Amino acid sequence: SKTSNTIRVFLPNKQRTVVNVRNGMSLHDCLMKALKVRG
Rank of each mutant, 00 (worst) to 15 (best):
V37A: 05
C30R: 02
K36N: 14
C30G: 07
K33G: 03
T6R: 10
M32S: 09
S1N: 14
R38S: 02
L31A: 06
V9M: 01
G39R: 04
S26H: 06
R16G: 03
Q15R: 01
T17I: 01
R8L: 07
V18T: 06
T3P: 15
V21F: 06
N5Y: 08
K2M: 13
A34P: 10
V21S: 06
V19F: 11
I7T: 02
S26R: 08
N23I: 09
R38G: 02
L35A: 06
T6P: 05
P12T: 02
S1L: 12
M25T: 14
V18A: 05
F10Y: 10
K36M: 12
T17S: 14
V37W: 07
R22G: 08
V21L: 07
T17A: 03
N20I: 15
P12S: 00
N13I: 04
T6S: 09
M32I: 10
D29A: 11
F10T: 06
T3I: 14
H28Y: 11
L35Q: 00
A34S: 11
G24V: 10
V21E: 00
S1R: 13
K36S: 09
G39V: 04
R38L: 03
R38Q: 06
S26C: 11
K36D: 06
M32T: 12
V18I: 10
S26I: 11
N13D: 08
N5D: 08
K2R: 11
G24Y: 06
K14R: 08
M32L: 12
K2V: 10
I7D: 06
V37M: 09
S4R: 15
S4C: 12
R8S: 03
S1Q: 15
K33R: 08
H28R: 11
S4I: 10
V37G: 01
L35V: 04
H28S: 14
N13C: 06
R22D: 03
R38C: 00
K14I: 04
I7S: 01
V9K: 06
K14E: 09
N13H: 08
Q15K: 04
V9E: 00
T17P: 01
S1T: 13
M25I: 14
D29N: 13
G39S: 13
V19E: 06
V18E: 04
L27V: 15
N20S: 09
R38H: 01
M32V: 11
I7N: 01
S26G: 07
R22F: 05
M25L: 15
T3S: 09
A34T: 03
M25R: 13
S1H: 14
G24A: 14
T6V: 14
K33M: 06
R8G: 03
R38Y: 06
R16L: 04
Q15H: 00
M25K: 15
N20D: 04
L31V: 07
L31M: 07
K33L: 06
S1I: 13
K36R: 12
K2T: 09
L27M: 07
K2Q: 15
F10V: 02
T6L: 09
K33D: 04
T17N: 03
K33T: 02
D29V: 09
R16P: 01
V21G: 09
V18D: 00
L35M: 13
N20K: 15
N23T: 12
R22H: 10
L35P: 00
G24D: 11
N5S: 15
L31T: 06
T3A: 15
D29E: 08
